[in-house]
Amino acid sequence: MSDDWPLFEVFIRARSGLEHKHVGSLHAADARMAIEHARDVYTRRQEGVSIWVVRSSEIVASDPEEAEALFEPARDKVYRHPTFYAIPEEVKNL
C-alpha cells in the first residue's frame, strides 16, 4: 500500500566510550543513504561520533502481551541486589 522507502532504525554513539543508543527512525532507499540521512536528522549538534542503521523489519521485539511472563519472574528475587543483605554497620568495606 505504501511506496515509501524502507524504514531504518538509527543508533548513535554520542562519544567514544559510550554504547550506541536508539534515537529514532527514518526512511532511506538503502543503508548508505540511511546513514547520510541520520547524519542530517540526528546529529546536527554534534550528538554523535558513530551511527548504526538497521532495517526496522530486521528487528525482532518481545510482545508487550508477554511482558508479565518474561519479566515477572525477576520481581521477587530481591536477593540479587546488594541491599538485600543486612551487614552490621561496624563491618567496613563490604
Binding site: 522507502w5 524502507p6 532507499a29 538503502d30 543503508a31 548508505r32 543513504m33 532495517r55
Partner: peptide
C-alpha cells in the same frame, strides 16, 4: 531523484555505495 535512488538501491541489494 527518488526513482533513481530506489533503482540504485535495487541494483546494489539495498546497501548502497560503501565508503
Amino acid at each position: 531523484v527518488r526513482e533513481a535512488a530506489a533503482a540504485y538501491a535495487a541494483k546494489h541489494g539495498g546497501r548502497g555505495a560503501q565508503p
